[in-house]
């Protein structure tokens, strides 16, 4: 065993936080794509209509996972007390603002349908612009939250927020595509346009993750985490191959296919690719979390690495001597 890959990993943030970051990313990403599409002329109307439905519920469900992970969830109302220094407190306000704007946008656009008048379009524009700012803030927050953790060098390379923002856009886009397949009136051309966008975003994510890993390899402590993550089958197979490569190919095939087969021919391809991409996004966040190794402590030329040791099992009651 390589002696440099046996350091103690953080174990306090696991699946619930990974799901929280994942759903936060989906909500922010889907809303951003929907609102930007609306601004550029709503050429892909299904994208806007579906994307607006995703932002608020994704964040709401994600927040439930965060609450479930808290040791004292009844005090969650205190979470926004110190936005001057704490990224969780800042995130509390960013996400709250985003959820309010996403819900308002959904109501105004879908239920009130105010976009038919000039005044209504102006209101939607203001809400959408503010919503995009908060959505981008939400996506970036999921990465900055980790990046501000001084105790885990792997998260502090500066690349985590970049990776998480791009991954948020990718997973948001995949979620839109999955739901858009069942959206009434969606056309093959719209699905093809979305496929091309998704493929381009996946390429961006591959570049970002490579940048992240090469940055991690530059220093000993993050390098250990990078080695750990590359040794994880779930990361290499689940994320890199099934979560990025396969969806990329699926999206390209969907884009290049002839429209003669109709929408039905795309469903398996898009649904399969997008679902795998979503699972990959979750695996990415979970892998980044659980591979966070504690830093080495140094003094006077001595290195003190905190070594991972299995927890001693409790003695069995059957082994105790009789009273």
């Amino acid at each position: 065993m390589n002696p440099k890959v046996n350091g103690q990993l953080q174990s306090d943030w696991g699946w619930p936080i990974a799901v929280y970051l994942f759903l936060g990313g989906i909500g922010g990403g889907a809303y951003t794509i929907a609102a930007v599409n609306w601004f550029v002329g709503e050429t892909v109307s299904a994208s806007t209509a579906v994307g607006l439905w995703i932002g608020f519920p994704a964040l709401l469900i994600g927040s439930i996972f965060l609450l479930a992970d808290l040791g004292s969830p009844t005090r969650a109302v205190l979470a926004g007390m110190k936005p001057s220094t704490s990224w969780i407190a800042r995130g509390f306000w960013i996400i709250s603002a985003f959820m309010a704007l996403a819900l308002l946008h959904l109501i105004l656009h879908t239920f009130a349908d105010i976009g038919r008048t000039e005044g209504g379009r102006m209101i939607l524009g203001v809400v959408g612009a503010a919503g995009i700012v908060c959505a981008v803030g939400t996506m970036a927050y999921t990465g900055i939250l980790l990046g501000a953790s001084k105790g885990i060098p792997f998260w502090r390379t500066g690349a985590v927020p970049v990776v998480f923002v791009i991954s948020a856009l990718v997973t948001g886009h995949f979620t839109i595509m999955l739901i858009a397949l069942f959206y009434p009136g969606v056309t093959v051309e719209a699905i093809q346009a979305m496929s091309l966008e998704a493929a381009a975003l996946v390429v961006l994510e591959v570049l970002a993750i490579l940048f992240f890993l090469q940055a991690a390899f530059k220093a000993p402590d993050p390098r250990e985490s990078a080695l750990r993550i590359l040794r994880r089958r779930s990361f290499v197979i689940g994320y890199f191959i099934l979560g990025l490569a396969v969806p990329f190919v699926a999206m390209l095939i969907a884009y290049r296919s002839t429209t003669a087969t109709g929408l039905g021919g795309y469903v398996i391809l898009i649904a399969g690719g997008a679902s795998l991409g979503l699972v990959g996004g979750l695996i990415l966040r979970q892998s980044v979390l659980v591979c966070g190794a504690l830093p080495t402590l140094n003094i006077a030329g001595f290195e003190f690495r905190r070594i991972a040791r299995p927890k001693d099992p409790k003695p069995s009651i059957g082994l105790l001597p009789p009273h």
Partner: peptide, 30 residues
């Protein structure tokens, strides 16, 4: 005042913080 988010545990580079979900005995369960 602590809500148990464990962010401080991620932020401490010396690993000095702990949080427990329950007080456990050192002796066998039961």
């Amino acid at each position: 005042k602590c809500m148990g988010c464990k962010y401080c545990m991620m932020a401490c580079p010396y690993g000095a913080r702990y949080s427990v979900d329950k007080w456990e005995s050192y002796f066998p369960d039961g």
